[in-house]
């Protein structure tokens, strides 16, 4: 079985973001970028399935600017066999990404597609579900466990208040939650080897997909700053403040 795994280049999760002075967007100049953490988990899961003999090939794909090839090389260093880069400098919304991925699914015919549940920049949490709808495949979102069993996959999902397990026919789309696995670090020899693995570069036009969206970003602002309050010296003072000043007790 072939596994397709989608990754996204995003701001590093440790970086504190700044809004541009003209409020047009978040300022990403000279900011450290990295693979979206949920995508790392997706790559790890695909590679583990290959190591277990469930998968025979892992193909990584990304939609993004030229620099996003760094993240594909990371995926290759972590164990993906080859990569597809759909290059674009435009802001590509989840729907257009899902349309592009649907074309790749059509071409590659994977048995399983694994994506992160959300990217930590737009926090959309849409692409996997949209891909499932467009390809008419079942979806197991927010996965904390993935168990392939013959022509089915059991996906345990993190839902509000607990866990839910669903059985899906293959091929299927899975999106990862935090507890699915702990991604490994790429080792230096693997990083060197990854440079020689095949990486195809395509454009959205190659797939005949229009990436323009009908959603316009009008402005981006910093949230209302929360002012730090005071330190209290004792439990008694805390209770007094909560009762008489904040009036929440």
């Amino acid at each position: 079985m072939k596994i397709l795994v989608a990754v996204k280049r995003v701001i590093d999760y440790n970086v504190k973001i700044r809004v541009k002075a003209d409020h047009s967007d978040v300022d990403l100049t000279n900011v450290k970028m990295a693979m979206n953490p949920f995508c790392e988990i997706a790559v790890e899961e695909a590679v583990r399935l290959k190591e277990k003999g469930v998968a025979t090939e892992v193909v990584a794909v990304t939609v993004g600017p030229k620099a996003a090839q760094e993240q594909l090389r990371t995926a290759l260093a972590l164990g993906a066999d080859r990569a597809i880069h759909i290059e674009t400098d435009e802001r590509v919304e989840s729907l257009a990404v899902a349309k592009l991925l649907a074309k790749v699914v059509d071409e590659e015919q994977p048995g399983l597609v694994i994506l992160g549940k959300q990217a930590i920049d737009t926090d959309n949490n849409q692409t996997g579900q949209m891909l499932a709808a467009l390809t008419n495949l079942p979806q197991g979102t927010f996965a904390s466990e993935v168990a392939v069993d013959g022509d089915k996959v059991n996906v345990t999902r993190e839902i509000d208040g607990g866990l839910q397990t669903v059985a899906l026919t293959l091929p299927a789309i899975v999106t990862t939650d935090l507890r699915l696995n702990e991604p490994r670090y790429a080792k230096l020899p693997d990083i060197m080897k990854a440079k020689k693995k095949p990486l195809d570069v395509k454009t959205s036009a190659d797939y005949g997909v229009e990436v323009a969206s009908k959603v316009t970003l009008l402005k981006v602002e910093s949230p209302a700053e929360r002012k730090g309050g005071i330190k209290v010296a004792s439990v008694d003072e805390l209770i007094d403040k909560l009762k008489n000043e904040a009036k929440v007790l």
């Binding site: 701001i11 959309n124 959603v215 316009t216 009008l218 910093s222 949230p223």
Partner: peptide, 30 residues
Amino acid sequence: SQLSDVIGVESADTFLRPIYAGNAIATVKS
């Protein structure tokens, strides 16, 4: 398209939503 996690309504087509873990608030028009 879908607008996720909307926290404010400016009009029938314009909405506020947090991005970057709520460290920025985007105003988007659909």
